[in-house]
Design a protein around this nucleic acid. Structure first.
Lengths: 109, 109
DNA sequence: ATAGTTAATCGCAAATATACGATTAATATT
DNA sequence: AATATTAATCGTATATTTGCGATTAACTAT
């Protein structure tokens, strides 16, 4: 009995939720952190870092890619992943916007 | 055959993933946005704003509360919700930290 | 052509998330 | 005491996520 009504949120909200969801798993955060320290790009020998099956890691990479946070560049037979700068920036700004309110000024609670 | 290995991430990573996960649903973003505009606290007549069952909204509120992003104050027979300033701030900083790298400097890709 | 390497994808199992209506709990009002 | 109001919780159905091994696809090197 799921989803009787199809709610439509602003595309803003939809987009931010998508980013947040992609960031909502520790493995994916580790991957992103790795990508950011590893001067830039990197390929899937995350398999050596993480105690997970290759297929599982591939799936997480796919999710990050679908969310637009990373991009893969074929470099046969490997694939180089790197942060998708444009969307990363977008996410950065959207989160900054979300958190911009300073609730210290507010009276109650 | 799930989770053969119990991976332990840094508590940092674990915490950020938890925040992100809580933010990873449009309904919860709408709730937070509402809480932030509504001078401060607010009660569950989100039910009137969102086309969702009361129980569903209650569940989303619980998730936000479990993540530490909001807090509820009993005010019988209502409950006033508001942003949990301390954790909100924590989340704000953690996301800022995550996004601080500026990938424009980086060569490849 | 054959074998090797890398990574995506498929099929499956189990866990978790999302939504609902119904019920319950807590309190206020009559 | 009886009723009304508000919101949590329970039970349930379905969808999605997470993980795995096995297979496939794409390309290299022999």
């Amino acid at each position: 009995m799921r989803t009787l009504q199809k709610i439509d949120y602003s595309s803003e909200t939809e987009q931010l939720a998508k980013f947040a969801k992609a960031l909502g798993h520790p493995v994916r955060l580790v991957i992103l952190k790795h990508l950011s320290t590893q001067s830039c790009c990197y390929t899937g020998d995350l398999v050596e870092i993480l105690p997970l099956a290759q297929s599982t890691i591939s799936q997480h990479l796919k999710e990050l890619k679908d969310a637009g946070l990373i991009q893969g560049e074929v470099n046969p037979p490997k694939i180089r992943y790197c942060i998708d700068k444009e969307n990363w920036d977008k996410a950065k700004h959207m989160f900054a916007e979300l958190f911009k309110e300073d609730f210290n000024k507010i009276s109650c609670c």
